[in-house]
Computed example of a mutant assay.
Amino acid sequence: MMMNRRAFSKTLLVGAATSFVATHAGLAAAPTPPKARNVVLVHGLFADGSCWAEVIARLQAKGLNCTAVQNPLTTLPDAVAAARRILDRQDGPTVFVGHSFSGMILTEAGVHPNVSSLVYVAARAPDAGEDYAALAKTYPTPPATAGIVFDGDEGRLTEEAFLRDFGGDLPEARARVLYAVQQPFQKALLTGKTSNAAWRSKPSYYAVSTQDGTINPDLQRFMARRMGAKAIELNSSHLSLISHPDEITKLILEAAGQS
């Protein structure tokens, strides 16, 4: 396992990123977002709200008000309701940010009137009513999928898959801590479909992880193009919010009209 980690790390250009603007022929170019001082961040599977700590500290230093949603990881309606409660409390334009599975939440709850822009970080971005699992199957299956194990209806990642396929560019000690605090998810969570596609009406941004072992990077590129997002590519594992917090922060600041 450690040999795989070292081989993986040699492929990374840590901190390097290239920007591109992705447009889709069927979508209008995303409008310029209004200036926002609020940021609401949502975590995905195998994590909790603390995974945003590095990004939150940087955003707070820039004067932004940040709130991390504690995603219950039970059902999609439960997760959307938790995010909406936080969005309701915001006092003005809000950048809504999601990692991994929580892109489903952005897509559904991002139509909230307080949301001024959306930032997807290696995240799912389905269309309204789309079967995301079917979409994902049109691309090669990422290796982390084989590392999901279930205790009844409760799912989690094995330690090997977490260290190698989920957070492969993190220092091993840091990845082991994150593994220890991962939150299990319920099978029912994966059956939900969105009824909205907030990215069709809100300015959208996407951070692609090019070394992602959890969501296929080409699937990420497809979703970014389809939504007409302003996108960046990072030589990162799935956990770019932890391994590349400066770049993720910069993208969020741009979405807040503060770049």
Rank of each mutant, 00 (worst) to 15 (best):
G168E: 10
P184H: 07
P245Y: 04
Y205G: 07
R6H: 11
E108Y: 01
L253M: 08
S259K: 14
A29P: 15
S19C: 01
G49W: 08
E160Q: 00
W52K: 09
L239V: 06
L234M: 04
Q183D: 03
A224L: 00
A255M: 03
A133I: 05
S209E: 00
M1I: 07
V208C: 07
T210M: 05
I252S: 14
M1V: 15
V121I: 15
N65H: 10
L41S: 07
L190S: 09
I86K: 05
P171H: 08
R200S: 15
A224F: 01
A29G: 10
E159Q: 14
V42E: 12
D151V: 09
L163K: 01
A197Y: 12
D246P: 03
A16F: 06
E247H: 05
A16V: 01
R85C: 09
A207L: 04
Q211I: 02
L118A: 15
T23M: 13
T75R: 06
A29R: 14
G110S: 11
P113E: 07
N114H: 04
A22R: 06
E108W: 12
G26T: 13
A28Y: 07
E154Q: 14
A29H: 01
A122L: 01
P126Y: 03
P72D: 08
Q90H: 07
L41M: 03
L118Q: 14
P77L: 04
A197W: 11
G228C: 05
C66E: 08
D91G: 00
C66Y: 06
R200Q: 15
G92T: 12
E54R: 15
E130D: 00
H24R: 07
A231L: 02
V111Y: 05
A188N: 02
M223E: 09
A25K: 00
S240M: 00
R200D: 11
P93N: 06
L239Y: 08
G44A: 15
N235K: 01
D127Y: 11
V121M: 04
P171C: 06
Y132T: 11
D78L: 11
G147F: 07
A109Y: 01
F166D: 04
S201I: 12
L118I: 14
G192R: 12
A122V: 10
L87A: 00
S204L: 04
K193N: 10
L163F: 09
L234H: 06
L45S: 04
A136S: 13
V97D: 03
L219H: 08
G63I: 13
S116N: 13
A36V: 00
A61R: 06
A256D: 15
V97C: 07
L170Q: 05
G63L: 11
P77H: 08
T158I: 01
D131L: 00
R226I: 07
T249Q: 10
S117A: 14
T141D: 08
A17C: 02
M227P: 05
M3L: 11
A229P: 09
T75H: 01
T141G: 05
A125H: 03
G63F: 10
S116M: 03
A180E: 15
M104A: 10
P140Q: 09
A122Q: 06
K10P: 08
K137C: 12
A53E: 14
A144G: 10
A16I: 04
R200W: 10
A161I: 05
R200E: 11
S204Q: 14
N4G: 12
